[in-house]
Every structure is written in C-alpha cells, then in structure tokens.
Design a protein around this nucleic acid. Structure first.
Lengths: 210, 210
DNA sequence: GCTCCTGTGTTGCTTATCCAACAATTCCTG
DNA sequence: CAGGAATTGTTGGATAAGCAACACAGGAGC
C-alpha cells in the first residue's frame, strides 16, 4: 500500500536480485526440498544472516520468486494494460497455462508439496489481478468469491493441460478454453464503473505486495 | 608482503570485481579519457564514494585493471611455473606481444597518454616478474638494471609488432625475437642459486602488490 | 533411551557501503 | 575573459551486510 516509496537502498535491491538469480539456478539444479539456506548463501556469496534479513524463510522466498516470474510474464504481454478486457483475460489464461507447463518441465525435482506451494502462489496472483479488475465494478456476488472461482478455474485448466497426454498447441487450447472462463466474468458483471486512473491502478497490482 | 592474509570481507571482493567488470565494458565503449567516475559508479550501481574506498582514482584503477588482465594471461599459460626457464621467457614475450596488439584493437579510443599509462603498467609487471626470477640468482649487474632492460626490450618488441604494416604470425615473430632477449638473460646470469620454495615464490609474484 | 550431526532462526557487535553535502578544480560556452 | 556546469575527492552520520556464537529442532545410528 505504500505506493509512494522513496527509492530503495541500492544494497537491498542488489542483494535481493542476487538471491533471486542464484535461487533460480539452485531450483533447477537441486530442487526445492533438498536446497539449503546455506547452499544458497554460498552461491550468492552473502552471509546466511543476510538472507534472513530479506526473507522469512525458504517458503517466503519461493513465493516471492514465483510471483516475480509470473508477473514478468504477464507484464511482458499486457504492455501496461490495466483493466479487464477479453484480450487481457486471454493473455492471463495463456500465461498461466504456459507457466504451469514450464514448471513441470524446468523444475524436474518437483514433488507434491512443492507443486502445491507454487499452485498457491499463482492462485494468489490471479486472485489479486482479478480483485484489481473488479475494483471499480459492481457485481451481484462478492468480489472475493468471484476472484477465487476464476483463479481456481484458470489454474485448473493449466494443470489439466500440463498433464495431458496429447496436447494441442497452446494457442488452440487457450482459444478453446477462453469462452468458458469469460462467461464467468460476464455473468458476474452487472455494470461497469469509473475507469479513472487505470494505469496507476495497474501499477499497483504489478508492483505492490512486496 | 602480507603473505598470510586472513580471508577478505566478501563485500570487498564483490565490489571490486563488479568495478573491474564494468570498467572493462566502459573502457571499450567510451574510452579512458572521457570515462567519468560517476559513469562507472552508475554502471556498477555503487556509490561514488565507495569507488574511492577501493581506488585512489581513475589511474590507480586502470593500473590495477591492466595488471590483473596481464597476470591472468601469464598465469593461464605458465600453469604455476615459478622460476626462469626458456619456455617461461618465451611465454612471457608471447603474452606481452599479444597483449599489446589487443590493446590496440580492443581499446580503439586509445590516445597518446592512455597508451603511455598502459605501457608503464605492463613494464612494471615484467620488471616485477624478472625481479622475482632473479631473486635467488647472483649476477654481475644490479637486478634492477637487468629487469629494467628486459622490460624495455620486451615491450619494445611488442610495440613494434603491434605497429608493423605486415605482421608475421605471432608464433613466428616470437620465435625470431626470443633469442635476442634470451641472450640478455644468459649474459647476466653468473650461477643459479637455491630453488627451494619456488612455488610459493611464484605465488608471491602472482598475488602480491594489491 | 542417548548422542552426534545437520540445518534453522536469532542476536550483538563490527565493517563496508550509502548518501548528502562540501570545497576545489576543470570544462564549457557565451 | 567571466561565470555556470560538471567533475573530483573528502567527510560525518546512517544503514545494510558480515561474522561468530547461540539455542533449538529434527534425523540417523547405536
């Protein structure tokens, strides 16, 4: 919520970026479970205590890492678009499906609990984005419920696709699935509200929460 | 001389390495003269004051940078050999000639004073290596004079080669020039001394002086 | 049970880096 | 040539990162 944050101490961003970078490497090499904070600190060449100054634990780091990855994926495609539109919804679905498949491919060491963690993080992100889209819209059901349904539906699709034996092209799959999600949105939307300050709002979603 | 230095604070080595890396890039992009400490600090993403905590000024940095580059070139070829041998002398000449040519090629922004600075640094390095080779050897002339002559001779060769209109292959040139330098060495050497601890001595040359 | 061992968080103190401000040059331009 | 702008080094006080030490929790082996 601290939207007007004075610029960060460069030491902080540097260290955090180094942590993220090394974490990504270790994730593909060793897997999340066997990865140790000391391993990470060694690779980053920081003190273990410094890690704890940035993240509460492994799990907080994973959450942040996955969130960043996902947001980058979204932002690279939406180019600053900030409110709901059919295109943006399609882009969102596309991103989630692609992301889910990449997780299966890149992080081969995944296990049950790891995937659950990733799932939770991504759903939180989708939830957050939907909440933002709904911010100035009146609906006949609670925003939170709507966003929860949407997040589950989209992630479910992604999960299905990533497991499927014979997969159609990603674009084809998304085109086919899109109407099923769009209809949810359309059903809960009663009438649109003001659109003022949309770019600022989008930035809030993209940059807030850590 | 502080041979047994306890391990360095990781922040120091990290910062110094980042400085060296960015300096290398800026050197090829902007050239030494027009390059500003602020430019460098921006690129490295450190505070300007931090730079001055590491180096006295631009010139000290250049000296250190060139020294490091040159030493790496030598060490990559001598593989830990630490005292004089004809092969090592030939390697040294080769390295200097190659280095000098690379300077002309990579740092196109070079000017008179810049090249003089580089020349000084490299000569200092050759001088230091010769002094080390001579450490346990008795000669009929002062070590410093011998080392100075050798440094000038070798750098002169390198300068000549890098300017030459039509250059023979580097190996050919070095083979041709080598005896002219070797004869200097042979003339000043009266009789070899003890060879004990040679590896340690070599390390001193390679890692001392900053 | 017990001990050994590895990994986790935390803490107090030290040190490197940050930052804003400063005076002193040097550079540029009218 | 004057005077504004940019660059250079330097300083004091604030803050992030380093380090060693600690207590604690689980697991492995006996």
């Amino acid at each position: 919520m601290s939207s007007i944050s004075r610029k960060e101490d460069p030491r902080i961003t540097r260290t955090r970026n180094l942590i993220l970078e090394s974490f990504g490497h270790l994730l593909t090499k060793k897997g999340f479970e066997t990865l140790t904070i000391q391993d990470l600190a060694d690779k980053v060449q920081i003190n273990r205590a410094t890690f704890y100054a940035h993240f509460q634990d492994k799990y907080a780091l994973l959450d942040y890492f996955v969130s960043q990855l996902f947001r980058q994926k979204i932002e690279a495609r939406t180019l600053g678009a900030c409110q709901y539109s059919p295109e943006n919804l399609k882009i969102l679905i596309f991103a989630v499906v692609e992301f889910r498949s990449q997780v299966r491919k890149d992080w081969a060491h995944s296990n049950q609990t790891f995937e659950a963690l990733v799932e939770g993080t991504i759903k939180k992100q989708i939830f957050g984005l939907f909440m933002h889209w709904l911010e100035e819209v009146k609906t006949n059901v609670s925003h939170e419920i709507s966003a929860t349904v949407a997040a589950s539906a989209i992630y479910g699709l992604a999960n299905y696709y990533s497991r499927a034996k014979k997969r159609p092209a990603l674009e084809k799959f998304v085109d086919e699935a899109f109407p099923l999600v769009a209809v949810i949105w359309n059903s809960l939307r009663k009438h649109g509200g003001a659109r003022a300050g949309k770019d600022i709002l989008y930035c809030c979603w993209a940059e807030a929460n850590f």
